[in-house]
């Protein structure tokens, strides 16, 4: 179960990569801490849901993420379809990834080990550990945009979640269709709601 929670967290982090962080002038490590702190304080209440919505709307640029993962398909969509897809991603983050990530982080220790800043780019490395179940390294890539740090990717043992997300979506579109992808995502949302 912890793996699933971990994954959910990672996916959330991946989703937020494209979001222009409401950085408020913090360091990259502080941005990551804010995100994790928001996830860990999540509670399944109406207030919490509103808070999550607020955070995600304020912190996650779902539209840029959607544009990145759909690639050339994005340009083929009508404005209405693009809006629907962005909303679908936002709902999945809120209703699937966030609760599971919160559960995952409840019993785990997170240690911030490294922060490297190189011009407009930065890396923050954390070690997530459990006494009996070992450790896993989660890295965050950030970029400074308009004076603010934003998370651009999350890596589980150096494996990029965003790249993986994009690859899989492209494969489904190629094999089935954009409609097939959307159908699958809607079914998943319905299943988790």
């Amino acid at each position: 179960m912890r793996i699933r929670r971990l994954t959910s967290f990672c996916v959330i982090a991946a989703v937020v990569f494209g979001v222009v962080s409401q950085g408020w002038g913090e360091t990259p490590a502080e941005i990551v801490k804010q995100l994790i702190g928001s996830v860990r304080s999540y509670k399944n209440t109406d207030n919490s849901a509103a808070q999550v919505r607020k955070v995600t709307e304020e912190t996650l640029a779902i539209q840029e993420l959607a544009q990145h993962v759909l690639g050339p398909q994005w340009g083929k969509l009508s404005a209405r379809e693009q809006q629907d897809f962005v909303q679908l991603l936002q709902d999945l983050v809120q209703k699937v990834a966030y609760p599971k990530s919160a559960e995952f982080f409840r019993d785990l220790q997170i240690e911030f080990t490294t922060e490297r800043v190189n011009g407009n780019e930065a890396e923050v490395e954390t070690v997530v550990s459990h006494p009996q179940e070992g450790v896993v390294t989660i890295g965050y890539r950030l970029r400074q945009k308009a004076g603010r740090w934003v998370i651009t990717d999350v890596l589980l043992d150096d494996v990029s979640l965003v790249t993986n997300l994009r690859t899989q979506m492209q494969q489904v579109i190629a094999k089935e269709s954009y409609q097939g992808l959307v159908r699958r995502m809607r079914e998943k949302l319905a299943e988790e709601s």
């Binding site: 899989q168 489904v172 079914e187 299943e191």
Partner: peptide, 19 residues
């Protein structure tokens, strides 16, 4: 990790269900 992330991502997006 790649294998697992791949599955996790696909699960998150509902991509794990067969066509």
């Amino acid at each position: 990790s790649t294998g697992m992330v791949s599955h996790l991502v696909s699960g998150f997006l509902g991509l794990d269900a067969p066509a």
